[in-house]
Simulated scan of single mutants.
Amino acid sequence: MSNDRANAVVERITAIDWRAVGESFEHGTSCARLMREYLRRAALWVQELQKVHPGPFFDVSQSDRWPFFDIAKYVDPSVHADDELVEELDGFLSEYSSSLLTGRICRAALNWASLTDESLAGFGDLPDPFEPLLLVFERGGAFWIENGFIDFVASRVRLATWEDHLATEPMASLDGAVLDAIDED
């Protein structure tokens, strides 16, 4: 079952026209909103993972974890993406995506999709953290991090700490028509 999800993630990522990512500003507002949704979801997962991993889950010595980290590694360290899928994804990204951060995010999304239902069973109904980021990429949302912000050229999202994102209002829908309407406003 998780293999189907992992295959679907690789198919989605390899279907993205990475040459066009960042060339279009028409989805900047929705991409910024999707990023806020990712940060909210990731914060919810960190809050839950704090219960499993006693002590400070994120501190200065672990700054590489927030906000783009391999959540699956902390949910179930025994689960790994299929080697062939990792090879396919890495081969594709090395040819089409120039950002190390993009590669890290895509590999983390693949690992997430490789988790089993059993691995996720103890975490209730927490949302898929990577769906908003995959939508950002599919909508051409190139971004970079600078001066405490995630920047989409026309829109910026404050990075802040994971705790700051817990109170973010959840998006009612990730549907394409809803996202297009956000861009039109």
Rank of each mutant, 00 (worst) to 15 (best):
P129I: 01
R40W: 02
E138D: 13
F143I: 03
G140P: 14
L39W: 02
L101F: 03
A181V: 06
M1Q: 13
E138N: 13
D180I: 11
L110G: 00
G55Y: 03
M171W: 05
E118H: 08
V79H: 10
E87C: 05
H80T: 06
S30I: 03
L115G: 06
N147S: 10
A8T: 05
P67W: 05
S94V: 00
E48K: 15
E87R: 06
A32T: 05
L89F: 01
F69R: 08
A43W: 02
E163S: 15
P170F: 13
E84P: 01
Y74K: 08
N7H: 13
D70H: 05
D185R: 14
W112K: 01
V21A: 10
H80L: 10
Y96W: 14
I13V: 13
W18C: 10
V79T: 13
V178H: 15
P170Q: 14
P127H: 14
G28K: 07
D175S: 11
E131K: 04
K51A: 08
L179Y: 06
S173C: 09
I182W: 14
G55I: 04
T168E: 14
C31S: 04
V157M: 14
L133A: 01
H53E: 07
W18V: 05
G91F: 04
A8S: 13
L44D: 08
N3M: 08
G122V: 04
G91L: 03
R5Q: 12
I145E: 15
F69G: 05
Q50P: 03
E26A: 11
E84F: 03
L110I: 01
G124N: 11
A108Y: 00
P56H: 09
Q62K: 15
C31W: 01
Q47T: 08
F152Q: 08
Y96K: 07
H27F: 09
N111D: 04
E11I: 02
L115P: 07
D83A: 12
D83S: 10
T168K: 15
L115Q: 07
K51W: 08
L34I: 04
E37P: 02
H80E: 11
G148R: 09
D59N: 13
L110E: 01
S173Y: 09
R156P: 07
R36N: 04
H53A: 04
T29P: 09
W45D: 02
H53F: 06
S61C: 09
G55N: 01
E11G: 07
S30F: 02
